[in-house]
Amino acid sequence: MNDGTQPPIRLVLTIEEAADRLGIGRTLMYALVSAGEVESVRIGRLRRVPADALVEYVRGLRGEAA
């Protein structure tokens, strides 16, 4: 439960926020979303990246390295 001292946990992120979390540029993030490597959803006219999609993407990268 949020007591007001921490920002709320967001379920979906903008492309820019998702790129920031991964530590990559916005252009690369758009490319990953366009290629279907990172899941995204449409909410009205907006494109958003589910926060857990970033975890799945990194898991996939780690699986490729093994």
Rank of each mutant, 00 (worst) to 15 (best):
A19S: 03
A19T: 04
V49L: 08
L61Q: 12
R10L: 12
G60V: 01
R45G: 14
E16D: 15
G63H: 05
Q6Y: 12
P50Y: 07
V41N: 09
A65S: 10
A65C: 03
G44D: 12
L46R: 15
S34G: 04
D3S: 14
N2Y: 07
T27N: 05
T27A: 09
M1I: 02
V49C: 06
E17G: 08
L28D: 01
L54M: 04
V49E: 07
G60R: 07
E37C: 01
M29Q: 08
V58K: 07
Y57N: 04
Q6L: 15
V33F: 06
R48T: 07
A31C: 00
R48G: 06
E17I: 04
A65K: 09
I15P: 14
G23P: 03
R59C: 06
A65D: 09
R21V: 07
R59L: 10
A18W: 00
D3V: 13
A19W: 02
A51W: 00
E64N: 00
P7K: 12
T14G: 15
G4F: 10
Q6P: 09
E64Y: 01
R10A: 11
V55L: 12
A66W: 02
P7M: 08
I24A: 05
P50W: 04
E39K: 08
V33I: 15
V38R: 12
G23V: 02
G63T: 03
Y57H: 11
V38G: 11
E64V: 01
D20G: 06
V38C: 12
D52T: 13
L11N: 15
D52C: 10
I15Q: 15
P8S: 08
G23I: 03
I15H: 13
D52A: 13
M29A: 04
A51F: 00
L54W: 03
E16N: 15
R48W: 04
I43W: 03
A65M: 09
G44P: 09
P7E: 12
A31W: 00
V38H: 08
N2S: 10
R62T: 03
L22A: 01
Y30V: 09
R48C: 07
R21P: 02
T14R: 14
S34P: 00
R62C: 01
R59H: 11
R47Q: 13
I15K: 13
V55K: 12
G36A: 01
A35I: 00
R48K: 13
R45D: 15
L61W: 04
R48H: 05
Y30H: 12
D52H: 14
E16C: 09
V41D: 09
R62Q: 06
P7R: 11
S34Y: 01
S40I: 06
R62V: 04
E37H: 08
